[in-house]
Simulated assay, not measured.
Amino acid sequence: MARELNVEVVAADRKVWSGAASIVVAKTPEGEIGIMAGHEPVLGLLVPGAVKVRPSEGEPVVAVVSGGFLSVSQDTVAIMAEQAELAEEIDAAAARAELEALEEGEDDARRWAQARVDVAASR
């Protein structure tokens, strides 16, 4: 039997997703990182964007995070973010309207809003 990862995606206010998976892909300032069972321990910074999880059973899971941290240790992956949502929880029209309503100079809010629009569009 193939080794699995124990994955948790958590926001400041809730657990967004958890389960067994074969791979996790997330965005860091240096680019995307893919984690599979047996990966060396790592602690990394995440940028706003998609986190893709391929569960051991079922359909792929896509979440959007506002940034945060990725921790890998002994086949356990923790994605910790201030804000996180599953792709299917995002109202695409509302996300686009939110992005359009933001003023220039609201960089963090714009990055989060753009990440939500991008993930909603990828469904």
Rank of each mutant, 00 (worst) to 15 (best):
P29E: 03
V25D: 02
R54I: 13
V42N: 08
V7M: 09
I79Q: 02
E82W: 04
M80K: 01
K27G: 14
G105D: 14
I90M: 05
G68E: 07
A101V: 11
E32S: 12
V25Y: 02
A81V: 08
R14W: 07
A2K: 04
A101H: 07
N6M: 13
E89F: 10
V42S: 12
I35M: 02
L43M: 14
P55E: 15
W17C: 06
V53I: 15
P41Y: 08
D108H: 05
D75Q: 05
E100R: 05
V117Y: 12
G31P: 02
A2G: 06
L46E: 01
P41V: 11
E57G: 13
A84V: 11
A81I: 07
V72R: 01
A93P: 00
G44H: 06
W112Q: 02
A26G: 04
T28F: 01
A121V: 13
S73R: 03
E100M: 08
S22G: 15
E88M: 09
G38E: 02
A26F: 05
D75T: 09
G67T: 09
G68Q: 03
A63L: 01
V24A: 01
M1D: 15
G49N: 06
A113V: 12
L5W: 10
E40S: 14
E82A: 14
D13Y: 03
A94D: 12
A97I: 05
V47D: 09
E82F: 10
M36L: 10
D75N: 15
A78G: 13
P29Q: 02
V72T: 11
A50M: 11
E103P: 04
P41D: 14
V47H: 03
R3Q: 14
A20R: 07
I90L: 08
L70Q: 06
V53K: 00
K52F: 10
A95H: 04
R123I: 15
W112Y: 08
V62S: 05
A109N: 09
T76H: 14
I33P: 00
V9P: 00
V9C: 04
S56K: 03
V117Q: 11
A81D: 04
A97E: 15
E85Q: 10
E8Y: 05
G49H: 06
A92L: 13
E88F: 13
P29Y: 03
P41H: 08
V62I: 09
P41W: 06
V25Q: 03
E30K: 03
S71K: 10
R96H: 11
A93F: 03
